[in-house]
Amino acid sequence: MLTIKNLHAGVEGKEILKGINLEIKAGEVHAIMGPNGSGKSTLSGVLAGNEAFTITEGEVTYLGENLLPLSAEMRALEGIFLAFQYPIEIPGVSNAHFLRAALNARRRHRDEPELDAFDFQELAKKKMELFELNPALMDRSLNVGFSGGEKKRNEGFQMALLEPTLAVMDETDSGLDIDALKIVAQGVNSLRSPERAALVITHYQRLLDYIVPDFVHVLADGRIVKSGGKELALELEKSGYAWINRGTPGEEGV
């Protein structure tokens, strides 16, 4: 579904990603773990089409097509969804208006009939229950006055509504207490299917107890330095990231 080859990217002339290689197949959940500053958020931004980042080398193919020339909105329409680490507050734009516009843009793109306000409300209500969100939030301004947990659950809710082919979750666990984390994970797990894939980016192993990945990759200084199965996350939890310069977790001397 997604193939990243030798991807170099940065911001304002500073190289942050220094040759990423990654292959994600349909049905798979991959986790990317790494310390702060390793390039996790740059990778998610690049995949979502954030023009603040410059790509200097490499290629990314998504569903067999070159992803990089596509605009952010075209990527969204083609099924890529980024759950933001810091969801943006937009005063005056109601959650409901915004999401109906987003959903109908995607439905038009797929030649599906648009949803009217009533059908949309029904659908949204169901999906909100999944994330235990208060339905009153639909009429509030997008993310304005939402608690940290509500913002993240709102990201999950948007994802459930838009049903992406590839979900990229950028540190969705940060700022979540354990109950909220379980709720979000449950919602995400309900989306898992053989046609879909997810890239879960996180600093901590904790989230991966609930969204169990098929593969775990360790990102350090803009490169994937180690890949493995879900057990790699547990090793990282024990030994932290300090081993990275030496090559293998668990070999860290005291």
Binding site: G49, N50, S71, A72, A76, F81, P87, A102, A105, H109
Partner: peptide, 11 residues
């Protein structure tokens, strides 16, 4: 803010 809306499919 523009990017956030675009990332959800708005032109």
């Amino acid at each position: 803010q523009i990017f956030y809306l675009r990332s959800r499919g708005l032109a």
